[in-house]
Design a binder for these strands. Structure first.
Length: 271
DNA sequence: GACCAGGGCCGGC
DNA sequence: GCCGGCCCTGGT
């Protein structure tokens, strides 16, 4: 186990921020996260965190996954002091970080996300993992399902996918899995692409339009200049930024503010 | 039961 | 570039 004090980091906020869908609280302070085929138990008490993994695994994977090398306080300091809405949003979600998630996993997840709500996205993703993901056992002997590979999905039929209740998104998933598994759509090429180039390439996939490509760019490729505009952000912009959102001011990292605003909005409606 | 909306995309025009 | 249709679920 690794214990660390970390600022600007909050598990509940990240789990509820709509960027990852396999991070869940299972009692007061303990969370479990499954990313790709990796499992982590982690707990939080204030600014202190216990990572239940080896030092090698922490440094080799999770530290980067949680974006812990990045100073989020300096981003927050850039927010316009006169922008009351964004100040409140950043304060409400001050522990949010933009995770470095797996590209294939984000392609699938955000194809599923379209015209869908977060609880149901989680349900469908979990169902896909249970049906088609590799069964694994963590170091602390917990059973879990890895995220299904493109290869595995590509071998399925629309009929096979029925139990997962994807709706009309089933063929998008199948087509994209086939493109990736066959090598026709090479995921490694994204290493050399900037945000705009990535977005254009991602939109070649079936079921990936502007908004989904922006989410994948932000949450998997860590292009934090991506600013996905969904129904929530759209209404925020209409209600609080009638003269346009000040993108010039936040060039290069507007995606972080997008997350603060999105989190603030969906959690305000819940309470 | 009816109707609506959910981190939108596709195809036809 | 606009617009109708879309699978499914949960809430009202």
């Amino acid at each position: 186990m690794i214990s660390k004090q970390i600022m600007d980091f909050d598990l509940e906020q990240i789990a509820g921020s709509g960027q990852c869908f396999r991070m869940n609280c299972y009692d007061d302070i303990n969370y479990r996260i499954i990313a790709r085929d990796k499992y982590l138990k982690i707990s939080q008490r204030g600014d202190w965190f216990d990572f239940y993994c080896s030092e090698e695994e922490f440094q080799g994977f999770w530290e980067h996954y949680f974006d812990l090398h990045t100073d989020y306080a300096s981003y927050k300091a850039c927010i316009d002091p006169k922008d009351d809405y964004m100040q409140k949003a950043a304060s409400a979600g001050s522990g949010i970080r933009i995770l470095h998630q797996d590209l294939w996993e984000m392609i699938v997840t955000f194809i599923i996300s379209q015209r869908n709500n977060i609880p149901r996205i989680k349900k469908i993703v979990e169902s896909l993992c249970k049906e088609f993901g590799e069964k694994k056992v963590s170091d602390n002997k917990e059973l879990y399902d890895a995220f299904p590979t493109a290869q595995r999905i590509s071998e399925l039929t629309l009929e096979d996918l029925k139990p997962c209740s994807l709706g009309y998104r089933d063929r998008y998933l199948l087509d994209s899995a086939k493109a990736v598994a066959s090598g026709e759509f090479d995921l490694d090429m994204f290493l050399n692409l900037n945000y705009e180039e990535s977005k254009v390439m991602l939109m070649k996939l079936s079921g990936v339009g502007t908004k989904v490509a922006e989410c994948i760019s932000l949450f998997a490729l860590h292009h934090i200049d991506a600013f996905p505009i969904d129904t929530h952000i759209q209404s925020i912009l209409a209600d609080h930024y009638e003269n346009g959102f000040p993108f010039e001011r936040y060039q290069g990292f507007a995606g972080i503010l997008q997350q603060y605003a999105f989190y603030y909005d969906i959690n305000k409606k819940l309470s």
